[in-house]
Amino acid sequence: MRKKIIGCLVVLSFGALFTGGCAKKDVVRSEEPISAVQTAPPTAQTTPAEVARPAQPVQPAQEARPEAQGGATAQPMTETTPTREPAVAQEAPKAGQAAKAPAAELQAELQKIYFNFDSADLSEESRGVLSKNADYLSKQPSVKVRIEGNCDERGSDDYNMALGERRAKAAKDYLVNLGIASDRLATISYGEEKPVDQGHDEAAWAQNRRDEFVIVK
C-alpha cells in the first residue's frame, strides 16, 4: 500500500512537472508570430539618438582640453640627445700586449684553460696548464696578470657573467695555492661577451669556455 502511494506520488509529480513545463512552452510558442511582426516597425523607427539618450543619462560633453594637453606635449620631446662620449680606453688587454718584448714573450707562454658547460671545475688538463703558467709567473716576479673568465653563448648571459667570474677565480685560487702572490692576480669576467670563435657549434663553444691570462704590467 505504502509503495503504491509513493508510486502514485512520484508519477503524479512527474506528470505535474511535465504538464507545467508544457503549459509554459505553449504560451511562449503561440505568441511567436505576433512578436515577430510587432518588433519590426519600432526597429526602423527609433533613431539612434533617441534610444541612446535614456540609456545613458549622464553624458558629459567631453571636449578637447587644449591647454592641459597642449602644454604637456609642447615640451621638447627630443629628449634623448646624449652627449657623445670620447671613445674611452680600450679594455686593458691591448695595453698589456703592447708592453715590453719580454712581456710579449711571456704572454705567449701563458696558456688558456678550458671548461665544461656550466662548470668552473678545473680539469686534470687545466691543472697541468696552470702549473706551467705558475712556473713562468714565478720566474717573472714583477709581472702582474689578469685572469679573464669567458663562457659560451648557450647559457643565460646574466648567469654567465657570474660563471665567468667563477672560472677566473677558480684559476686564481689554484695559482695562489701554487705560490703566486694573490696581489699579482686580478680577475674579470666577460661572460659570453668576448667569444674567440663566433661559430654556433660545440667546437666553437668549447673554445669559448675558457680562462685567458693577460699580462697587465
Binding site: A52, Q56, Q62, R65, P66, Q69, G70
Partner: peptide, 14 residues
Amino acid sequence: VLNREVTAKRYTGG
C-alpha cells in the same frame, strides 16, 4: 552604438 564621444584630445607640438 551608444552614440557618444568617448574621449577627445588636442595635441600641439613640433
